[in-house]
Amino acid sequence: MLNIKNLHVKLEDEDKQILKGVDLTVPAGEVHAIMGPNGSGKSTLSYVLSGRDGYEVTEGEASLYDHDLLDMEPEERAAAGLFLAFQYPVEIPGVGNLTFLRTAVNAQRKARGEEELSSGEFLKLVREKAKTLQIDAEMLKRPVNVGFSGGEKKRNEILQMAMLEPKMCILDETDSGLDVDAMRLVAEGVNALRSPERSFLVITHYQRLLDHIKPDVVHIMSNGRIIKTGGPELALEVEKNGYGDLLAEVG
């Protein structure tokens, strides 16, 4: 499970506080959604948890099971079971998607003291997982995300998730830039990965993704803090009335 306590984060280069005391617990097997207006700190939370440079934690803690996340390098967090699906997946020309996937899978296995997958085992596994996401052989061969459509990029993120089998998946605005069909496909991929051992934190602006990926708990984030927590009905309320009422309510 993911445990965040009183997390305060500022930008490293400027005196700007982004997170102002975030408390959040995502138990194993649950799907939590974080919604909130632009600039509320949702993406910052996902970056800080996965270890991106440029942020300074001034107070608080975050742990994944018994791992103290904030003391770890990004690759160590990944090996510990954390996965961030990017809002804007990065293009890496000249590096084949398969090479990238295999490097990542085996690096994590190595870090956990497990045996690396052979070429044959890896290919069998990746083909199997790619099929359900409608990712064809051609897409696997192409350089990482280069020339991929928005939908292909997001499907490729979910494929990585499926291959790496993380314990904690953070989806940062996975619905952005997707049409209805692409969103459904991505959501199906995510739903297929739901299990009692795996948790999800779904960051989104809109209710519509949550129609497909049904959350157990919905949090509303504003100005660097979680201001309200509730069931799926909270997302519907936001969709109907916007954030204005909620923000006013909290003051």
Binding site: S50, G51, A79, I92, V105, A107
Partner: peptide
């Protein structure tokens, strides 16, 4: 960051 977040050292 993208590569490292996937576990690549």
């Amino acid at each position: 960051f993208y590569l490292r977040s996937r576990g690549v050292p």
